[in-house]
Nucleic acid binder design. Structure first.
Length: 612
DNA sequence: ATAGGGTTAG
């Protein structure tokens, strides 16, 4: 349907396997994708700039093209550092850059250590690469220590140094620190702000959901020297689309066109993605036409987004048709494309088909990644086939991949779901031994899993351990808890409650208490919940709407309603805040347990509050 | 000219 005009049927519509077989055949041999990078793209906009470099540069390039493994890199490095009188910093920087591309961040750091030991000179480029390596390893703090090296060795830092650091901070969710640094840089004019710096900050903000702040930064840019360019516009356009504010995204998109800042394939892809989420297929088609007319061609990302969109809606046949089109247009599907297809099949419960997709992508030479496995593992977990999931988990290491925090979280959740608490605990330990500290999702899964299986004490002790370590974690755990404990079916409802909490500037303490009260109520541990409410007051941490909501919700779930009524009465009589949601639930509850008279008594009170 | 910015899993 969508690509009607584009289609020149290659095979049966929507059938993945014949398509891929044909594809492999038409490309002659199996591992076609290995040589992908060297195949010139048929689209003018993708054509690599002709390399008009001087002789010397070509030599260097060739030198590092041979560096394909860690071993090669180590050899070349040792060759370089032995050069007399001193190796060129440019060559060293190039090698280190290659290492970053190989994701060998810790090796970069140890190379640098060796260089210092040998007294080999380094410059701002090298230091920035090392700093970036620390950041990519998730240690922005150590990145700061490189700043010390700048000072000590008298190397001048610049905007690149700081944008690297900035990205590291955002990567670790340290928005406060990042914004503090940003303001300091601007205020004290420590370095000149350029487009990339703004882009980094805006992207970091957007990833954390602060799209409006990013937008206001864009407006600030208009006043300064670094004017907004295509990338910064695209970042905000993308964020708006992700926030489902496609209209606002299009306004910004039109604005940039008006100002003569030409959108590129990223910009268009984001908009396509945003429109897909709302089933605006006609608009998608128009947009694809528009970009093609401007000689901006959909690339593998654009196509993958379309594939993903169809798959998420269960329309795998249409997704495969997109795949067909992209192959015809000469864009090679990559691991992301195939992962989306796999997810599509998993969502329909056809995990075995997804598994075969994985096999056939390996056949045609596309390397699968940890995402591929996570998608399959999730598929099995959702069907409560935990043995199969565990089997895949073992396969991951056999394939030379490493399970990541998502793999572990997925299986943990699955194990809890089928009540295998001991297995979860073992895997949780295994995860930490493998060097993954639980993130926000894992925390939520563990807490929810324990509570669901009736281990309140274990949940609480975990929670108390975490709350000491992660100050910014409460809100999300709470959100998760709200979603999980009470099965508020609509996510947007849970979200709106959450947003409300956020907008009234709710103190983390309240959320912390709420989560606890919540767990206690579910278990019918009313006395303890009551005790906790008193403690809240003692600590001058006043309960809020959410507390009431949680308690009432919890009571509705709990079978020990009569016992719990005491607590509820106390809550109401003490005049704790409650909103309309609480009220309706409350009335429901009171009727349910035959507390009509109490309800009657409460009517004036309820009425009064509803007025407010 | 050797460094820094934008899409997919839980």
């Amino acid at each position: 349907m969508l690509f009607h005009s584009w289609r020149k049927s290659l095979c049966n519509r929507g059938n993945f396997f014949p398509l891929i077989q044909l594809f492999a055949l038409s490309h002659g041999h199996v591992s076609i994708f290995h040589s992908c990078a060297s195949v010139p793209s048929k689209y003018p906009s993708f054509r690599k700039k002709p390399s008009v470099c001087k002789k010397r540069k070509v030599v260097i390039f060739r030198e590092f093209k041979d560096v394909n493994s860690l071993n090669d890199a180590v050899c070349v490095f040792h060759q370089l550092v032995r050069k007399e009188p001193v190796p060129s910093v440019v060559e060293l920087a190039k090698l280190l850059r290659v290492m970053i591309n190989m994701k060998e961040y810790s090796v970069v750091i140890s190379f640098f250590g060796e260089m210092r030991k040998l007294g080999i000179p380094f410059d701002d480029y090298i230091l920035t690469i090392v700093m970036n390596s620390f950041c990519l390893l998730g240690c922005a703090e150590n990145g700061f220590s490189i700043l010390g090296v700048f000072f000590k060795s008298g190397v001048q830092f610049n905007v690149v140094t700081f944008s690297t650091l900035m990205r590291g901070l955002f990567e670790q969710n340290k928005i406060q620190d990042a914004m503090w640094l940003f303001r300091k840089l601007v205020k004290e004019k420590i370095c000149k702000m350029d487009e990339v710096m703004f882009g980094t900050v805006m992207n970091g903000l957007c990833k954390q959901g602060h799209t409006q702040t990013a937008l206001s930064l864009l407006r600030i840019m208009e006043q300064g020297d670094a004017k907004p360019n295509t990338v910064v516009y695209s970042i905000v356009v993308d964020a708006l689309c992700k926030d489902q504010m496609v209209g606002a995204a299009f306004n910004l998109f039109n604005e940039m066109k008006r100002k003569g800042i030409t959108p590129n394939v990223h910009t268009y892809s984001s908009l396509v993605d945003g429109l897909c989420k709302f089933d605006q297929w006609e608009e998608v088609r128009l947009l694809l036409d528009e970009m093609t007319h401007l000689n901006i061609f959909p690339n593998v990302h654009t196509f993958s987004m379309l594939v993903d969109a169809f798959c998420k809606k269960g329309m795998v046949e249409d997704a495969v048709e997109v795949l067909n089109v992209m192959i015809q247009k000469g864009e090679h599907p990559d691991v992301v494309t195939f992962n989306a297809i796999m997810e599509g099949y998993c969502l329909r419960g056809e995990i075995d088909v997804a598994r075969r997709v994985l096999d056939s992508m390996i056949d045609i030479g596309v390397k699968c990644d940890i995402f591929s496995y996570n998608i399959l593992v999730n598929g099995y977990c959702k069907q409560k086939k935990l043995d199969e999931a565990m089997h895949l988990y073992c396969e991951i290491s056999q394939k030379g991949l490493k399970p990541d925090i998502v793999t572990y979280s997925t299986i943990l959740q699955g194990l809890f779901e089928v009540g295998r608490v001991e297995c979860s605990e073992n895997l949780f330990t295994e995860m930490q031994n493998a060097g993954h500290s639980p993130d926000i999702y894992t925390c939520g899964i563990m807490l929810h899993g324990y509570l669901k299986n009736g281990h309140v004490e274990r949940a609480m002790s975990l929670f108390h351990r975490w709350e000491k370590q992660k100050e910014d974690a409460y809100i999300l755990i709470y959100n998760r808890g709200n979603d999980g404990f009470f099965k508020i079916q609509k996510l947007d409802k849970a979200r709106s409650i959450f947003d409300k909490l956020y907008s009234v500037g709710l103190h983390p303490d309240v959320i912390r208490y709420n989560v606890t009260v919540n767990g206690l109520c579910i278990e019918g541990l009313v006395d303890e919940a009551k005790e906790l409410l008193r403690k809240m007051e003692d600590n001058r941490c006043s309960p809020d709407n959410a507390t009431s909501n949680l308690i009432v919700n919890g009571l509705l779930k709990s079978n020990k309603t009569n016992e719990a009524m005491t607590l509820l009465k106390e809550i109401i009589q003490r005049g704790f805040p409650a909103d309309r949601v609480t009220m309706s639930l409350l009335i429901e509850l009171l009727l349910l347990i035959g507390e009509g008279p109490f309800l009657l008594n409460m009517i004036p009170e309820l009425h009064l509050r509803n007025e407010k």
